[in-house]
Amino acid sequence: MSVIRTSAEAVVEGAAATLYADDRESLGSVTPHTRVTALNPEAVALRREAERGFCVHDAGGCR
């Protein structure tokens, strides 16, 4: 089994801090998934960009 050390909310910076803030705003807390993916925020941004290519965005969001 692997152990992945994530950053505490008080010390996270930059793009990772934005991911943490998005979770807190929408969910009330930072999820374990966000804590792990925030270790590589550039990959998160690339994934989101790729998803936009598959979605139709309008006022209702991605559908």
Rank of each mutant, 00 (worst) to 15 (best):
E49S: 09
G61F: 00
E13Q: 15
A59D: 15
S26P: 00
V3M: 06
S7E: 15
S29V: 13
A15C: 02
V11L: 11
G28N: 03
A15H: 05
R52D: 11
P41R: 00
R24I: 14
G61V: 06
H33V: 15
E25C: 02
E25M: 09
G53R: 06
A8M: 10
R5W: 03
N40T: 13
I4M: 02
L27F: 11
V36M: 10
V56W: 10
S29W: 13
A43Q: 10
E13T: 15
E49H: 07
C62G: 03
V12F: 02
V56Q: 13
R63V: 02
A17P: 04
T34L: 05
R24K: 15
G60M: 13
R48M: 07
T34H: 07
A15L: 06
R48G: 05
S26C: 07
V11C: 07
P32R: 05
V12H: 02
G53V: 01
A21R: 14
V11A: 08
R63W: 06
I4D: 01
G28K: 03
G28Q: 03
A50G: 04
R24Y: 01
F54V: 11
E13D: 14
E42M: 07
H57Y: 14
A59R: 15
R63H: 09
V56F: 09
V12T: 04
R63E: 05
V36A: 08
A21D: 11
R48V: 06
A16Y: 00
I4S: 02
Y20P: 06
E13P: 12
V56Y: 09
R63T: 10
V3S: 06
G14I: 01
A17V: 06
S29Y: 15
T34R: 13
D22V: 12
D23C: 14
T37A: 10
A8E: 13
A16L: 05
G14P: 02
L39E: 04
L19C: 00
E51Q: 13
D58I: 04
L46S: 05
A17I: 06
T37C: 14
